[in-house]
Deep mutational scan, measured.
Amino acid sequence: GVRVRALYDYDGQEQDELSFKAGDELTKLGEEDEQGWCRGRLDSGQLGLYPANYVEAI
């Protein structure tokens, strides 16, 4: 996976979405899909989806 850092807070709206705060680091686990979602893993171990444009590569 690729380490990325959140640029903005994001509150997951669905069960399969991650929630994070600006500045949090997570691991991107795949390329974004056509809707702009990426699969990732928080350092807590939680897996889920997040909007790709909310993070930057570290």
Score class of each variant (00 low, 15 high):
residue 1 G to A: 08
residue 1 G to E: 13
residue 2 V to N: 15
residue 2 V to P: 04
residue 2 V to R: 09
residue 3 R to I: 04
residue 3 R to P: 03
residue 3 R to N: 03
residue 4 V to Q: 07
residue 5 R to E: 03
residue 6 A to D: 00
residue 6 A to C: 05
residue 6 A to Y: 00
residue 6 A to E: 01
residue 7 L to V: 08
residue 7 L to K: 12
residue 7 L to G: 02
residue 7 L to S: 05
residue 8 Y to M: 06
residue 9 D to F: 01
residue 9 D to S: 12
residue 10 Y to V: 04
residue 12 G to A: 12
residue 12 G to W: 01
residue 13 Q to A: 13
residue 14 E to I: 11
residue 15 Q to Y: 07
residue 15 Q to R: 11
residue 15 Q to E: 11
residue 16 D to P: 06
residue 16 D to I: 09
residue 16 D to A: 09
residue 17 E to N: 06
residue 17 E to G: 13
residue 18 L to E: 02
residue 19 S to A: 09
residue 19 S to W: 04
residue 20 F to Y: 03
residue 20 F to G: 02
residue 21 K to P: 00
residue 22 A to S: 14
residue 22 A to V: 13
residue 23 G to I: 02
residue 24 D to K: 03
residue 25 E to W: 14
residue 26 L to K: 01
residue 27 T to L: 12
residue 28 K to Y: 13
residue 28 K to I: 05
residue 29 L to S: 03
residue 30 G to V: 09
residue 30 G to E: 15
residue 30 G to C: 14
residue 31 E to F: 04
residue 31 E to T: 12
residue 33 D to S: 11
residue 34 E to C: 12
residue 34 E to K: 15
residue 34 E to I: 11
residue 35 Q to G: 15
residue 36 G to D: 03
residue 37 W to C: 09
residue 37 W to M: 10
residue 38 C to A: 14
residue 38 C to H: 04
residue 38 C to S: 08
residue 38 C to W: 02
residue 38 C to T: 13
residue 39 R to K: 12
residue 39 R to A: 13
residue 40 G to S: 00
residue 40 G to P: 00
residue 41 R to F: 05
residue 41 R to I: 14
residue 42 L to H: 15
residue 42 L to W: 00
residue 42 L to A: 10
residue 44 S to F: 02
residue 44 S to G: 12
residue 45 G to E: 03
residue 45 G to W: 03
residue 46 Q to K: 09
residue 46 Q to I: 12
residue 47 L to M: 14
residue 47 L to W: 11
residue 48 G to Y: 00
residue 48 G to N: 00
residue 48 G to Q: 00
residue 49 L to M: 12
residue 49 L to E: 08
residue 50 Y to R: 01
residue 50 Y to V: 11
residue 50 Y to G: 00
residue 51 P to W: 03
residue 51 P to D: 03
residue 52 A to E: 09
residue 52 A to V: 11
residue 53 N to W: 08
residue 53 N to T: 14
residue 54 Y to R: 14
residue 54 Y to N: 04
residue 55 V to R: 01
residue 56 E to V: 10
residue 57 A to F: 11
residue 57 A to E: 15
residue 57 A to P: 15
residue 57 A to C: 10
